[in-house]
Design a protein around this nucleic acid. Structure first.
Length: 505
RNA sequence: GGCGAGUUGGCGGAGUGGUUACGCAGCGGAUUGCAAAUCCGUGUACAGGAGUUCGAUUCUCCUACUCGCCUCCA
């Protein structure tokens, strides 16, 4: 059996991956807070863990892997946005607005991630649908002496969990020493974090956990408890892989571990912790607070196909920071077009062993894509198709997409006699996507004119026409035949500006 | 201030204790009226210093710089 190796953040080492149960491999990935379109940074873990999901399914069988990714739909940012909508005249109740807002955002998220070729997880739980489980877990923590109530809040007592800080490699004392956080006065320890907080009548609220015989009151869960509760409910107290962005390592994942390990002390929670590095813009992390983000939808609307975005993502190893650049996107688009064109009608065979080797070595997708390039170069098309499919590139389907479909138009350029041979050169117009007949007719005329200049050896006119055509995005190529008569092809590199085309006539 | 990660050729980006991936760009050649396209060829890079070693870009330590987390964050 294929041996996958993964870098485990918990041990800071690459370790051979062995599932607890090979017939039920379980993975939990932290999903988005749904108040806005997903930006490119949000998309990275989706693509990274989609590759892992596909890899696990490939190795252990499609039906033997369970992938959970949550939606955080309880959050102050959501509340804030809902309030803004209300103030702007939305007549619905705040809770109705929140539900509609999160519903809509989840719809966008799915659409955008689908476009990136990410498979949907087996479970996509919403926090609001697991409040009962969260309350139960909090009550369990209270009963075990790991949590306490103060001023309507329930807090986790970090001093009650000696391993707190182990994942992120910090000690509670060090953190307090360097803390820049204002500490709420009701906390026993500055690092204690909220499990439950009170809600005003304006805020969404649920019945809180029971403390000293009665409900602590209307409130809402802290952020971290939802993942602990949902992972436990769906995957059980111990599972294989927990993933997310590196920025979640502390405090989010640290807090999850504390909660889950204290609630279920003998279970162990997640065996492998995987963290992807950040997407950067000009060397800085892309984030909402820095305002240097763009959404997946922005890129799609700009005309970058989802597959291209995915390719750019996978061309950098997941544990390294990645810059999005147009240059990378252009290269990726070119590569995918070339591959897709070369495998038209090719049936997939087996996944290439070298490709597999790259993938199973801590998901070295960059290396894996290089292997795909080698398969393409060596004309091993059936393996190229099969291998590419494993990381989510359906080359046969891509070949059907307008952006990757080669348009070809050919027409006869009349008859010519050369050294007594009757010859009929052709004029071709080729390009990516659909090209309307008005456009290719005009361009075919252009090629005809160009060829006439060349046949007349009027190279000055021919070259000048070639240069101005190039400026309009049309590359004129000559094809030579044995008897010396040139045919010609116009290759349309980009979208043609009709005004520029007109000027060439 | 604490903790963590990183620094590879013009750019992007893997990887390795000894034979220096790969892509793009560039350069040279074939070809071409000239180009384009294609094909062939071509790059002695691993932040700086010290150490370990027969040998280090790869291991250890130090320095510099970059980035991340410590506040919401994928």
């Amino acid at each position: 059996m294929t041996q996958i190796t993964l870098h485990n953040s918990r041990t800071r080492r690459k370790e051979p991956f062995t599932p607890i149960d090979p017939e039920n491999v379980r993975m939990y990935v932290c999903g988005p807070t749904v108040y806005d379109r997903a930006h490119l940074g949000n998309a990275r873990p989706v693509v990274v863990f989609d590759v892992l999901y596909r890899l696990l399914r490939h190795v252990y069988g499609d039906g033997n892997v369970t992938y959970v990714r949550n939606f955080t739909d309880v959050d102050d940012k959501i509340n804030a946005r809902a309030r803004v909508m209300q103030e702007a005249g939305d007549a619905r109740s705040l809770n109705d607005i929140i539900r509609a807002l999160t519903d809509e955002t989840i719809g966008w998220y799915h659409a955008d991630m689908d476009a990136l070729g990410a498979l949907r997880p087996d479970h996509a739980p919403r926090a609001t649908e697991f409040i009962v489980q969260m309350v139960a877990m909090i009550e369990g923590l209270i009963a075990k002496g790991h949590a306490y109530a103060a001023e309507g809040h329930v807090l986790f007592d970090v001093r009650s969990y000696p391993d707190y800080g182990k994942l992120s490699g910090r000690s509670v004392d060090d953190m307090i020493a360097g803390a820049r956080v204002e500490v709420a006065p009701y906390k026993r320890d500055p690092m204690d974090f909220v499990l439950w907080k009170p809600s005003s009548a304006e805020e969404p609220g649920w019945d809180g956990p029971v403390w000293e015989g009665k409900s602590i009151g209307q409130g809402r869960p802290g952020w971290h408890i939802e993942c602990s509760a949902m992972a436990h409910d769906i995957l059980g107290p111990a599972f294989d892989i927990h993933g997310g962005g590196i920025d979640l390592q502390f405090p989010h994942h640290e807090n999850e571990i504390a909660q889950s390990c204290c609630a279920h002390p003998d279970a162990g929670f997640a065996n492998f912790w995987l963290h992807n590095e950040m997407v950067q813009v000009e060397g800085k992390k892309m984030s909402k607070s820095l305002g240097n983000f763009f959404t997946v939808r922005d890129l799609l609307d700009q005309g970058w196909p989802g597959e291209v975005i995915r390719f750019v993502m996978l061309s950098t190893h997941y544990r390294k920071p990645m810059d999005w650049t147009e240059e990378k996107a252009r290269e990726a688009m070119e590569t995918l077009r070339t591959w897709a064109y070369s495998v038209l009608g090719v049936m997939p065979s087996q996944v290439d062993p070298e490709f597999m080797e790259a993938l199973q070595a801590d998901m070295n997708t960059s290396d894996a894509l290089t292997v795909l390039g080698e398969l393409h170069k060596s004309n091993d098309r059936a393996r190229l198709v099969a291998s590419a499919k494993l990381v989510g590139f359906d080359l046969l389907a891509i070949g059907e997409k307008s952006w990757a479909r080669l348009f070809e138009f050919k027409t006869n350029d009349g008859r010519f006699l050369s050294e007594g041979i009757d010859y009929q050169p052709t004029i071709g117009v080729i390009g990516w996507g659909e090209i309307p007949s008005e456009v290719h007719d005009v361009i075919a005329d252009l090629v005809h004119l160009w060829l006439r200049h060349r046949r007349n050896k009027d190279f000055e006119k021919a070259d000048s026409l070639r240069d101005s055509a190039a400026l309009a995005g049309i590359e004129l190529r000559a094809t030579r035949s044995k008897n010396g008569i040139n045919g010609g092809t116009a290759f349309i590199k980009n979208v043609i500006d009709p005004a520029k085309l007109e000027a060439l006539k």
